[in-house]
């Protein structure tokens, strides 16, 4: 693994995951009551529809592709990527989720 892959994967995965949750871009849907998977975002059938697995799958694919491209970057460009971006973006996303879900706690 290279520094470029580690940094780009971490940042892109977090941003993509946040976007997937917000826009509901799930690669697939799981219907737990039926034990069925379906491609893309599907409405609930019998019981709830679960998108969490699909959000992680979408984010994972996007991050692997971006990280793979980062491996091809010249060393001079990789040296300009700041490792702090990984934890700063993650921390920002966690705070953003707290804000988005505040309705559960403030009523």
């Amino acid at each position: 693994m290279t520094a470029g892959f580690a940094i780009v994967f971490g940042v892109v995965y977090t941003v993509a995951y946040f976007a997937c949750v917000e826009g509901n871009y799930a690669l697939f849907t799981y219907h737990p009551a039926l034990g069925e998977f379906g491609m893309g975002v599907q409405k609930a059938k019998d019981g709830p529809a679960m998108y969490w697995y699909g959000w992680m799958a979408t984010s994972g694919i996007v991050a692997v592709v971006a990280g793979g491209l980062a491996i091809l970057l010249p060393e001079a460009v990789v040296r300009r990527l700041t490792p702090a971006a990984t934890w700063i973006v993650a921390l920002a996303a966690m705070l953003a989720f707290c804000w988005l879900l505040k309705g559960f706690f403030l009523r």
Binding site: F9, V21, G67, A93, F104, R107
Partner: peptide
């Protein structure tokens, strides 16, 4: 609602942690 919301946060925090593992390991 608080318990339900806390579990929602748990799923998001756990997912974000997964994405950090390559950088953490590196």
């Amino acid at each position: 609602r608080s318990a339900e919301g806390a579990f929602e946060l748990k799923e998001h925090f756990a997912a974000i942690g997964l994405g950090l593992l390559p950088a953490y390991w590196y």
